[in-house]
Amino acid sequence: MIKKAFRMKVFPDQHAEYEKRHKELWPEMRQMLKEHGVISYSIFLDKETSFLFAYAEIENEELWKQITKTEINQRWWEFMEPIMETNPDKSPVSHELPQVFEL
């Protein structure tokens, strides 16, 4: 199992919408993540800063990288673009976080 952590940012006035969209995650998106070796995926929101902390446990780094190229993921990025910081390709601005401790 490989552990991934990264930080993103939602717009301050979009916290509720961000949470709503994830509570209603498209079934085909959920299925695609599982098919690409995602074992566990959690996102946490710091409401004071609007930063999102994401943590995923994956089976395979190459499968994880392929997620970005799927049609369903491209649609998800487009759907999420109005409510969070994104890059020109509509992907979320994301900063990978190195693991520094584990108990």
Rank of each mutant, 00 (worst) to 15 (best):
F53V: 09
N60W: 09
E62A: 13
M80F: 08
E78C: 10
Q66P: 02
K23G: 12
S42T: 10
F101C: 14
E85L: 15
E19G: 03
T70F: 09
I83M: 03
F79Y: 08
L97N: 11
E85Q: 13
M8L: 12
I43D: 08
S42A: 03
V38W: 00
G37S: 03
H22C: 02
K47E: 14
K47I: 06
K4Q: 09
H36D: 01
E19L: 00
F11Q: 05
A5V: 00
P12F: 02
I2Q: 10
E35T: 00
T86R: 07
E19Y: 06
I58S: 10
W76Q: 07
E81R: 09
Q74M: 15
K69L: 12
L45V: 05
E62T: 03
E59M: 15
L33F: 07
P82C: 02
N60E: 03
G37C: 01
W77N: 13
E35L: 05
D46K: 07
K20M: 10
M80W: 04
E102N: 14
A16P: 02
V93D: 03
K34I: 02
L97D: 06
A5W: 01
Q99T: 10
K65P: 07
L52S: 09
Y41E: 04
T68P: 00
F6Q: 03
P88E: 04
E78R: 11
Y41K: 09
Y55V: 05
M8H: 01
G37D: 06
I67L: 12
K34L: 12
T49S: 11
L45F: 04
K47M: 01
Q74A: 15
F51A: 08
N87C: 07
F79M: 04
M29E: 14
Q66W: 03
V100T: 12
K90I: 00
L103Q: 05
K9F: 01
E62I: 06
Q74I: 15
E96P: 01
W64A: 08
I2F: 14
F44N: 11
P12R: 09
L45W: 00
T86M: 02
G37T: 00
S91D: 01
E57C: 07
N73S: 14
V100R: 02
Q99N: 13
K20S: 11
P27Q: 09
E85W: 02
D89V: 05
E102Q: 12
L103R: 11
D46M: 06
S91H: 11
A16N: 15
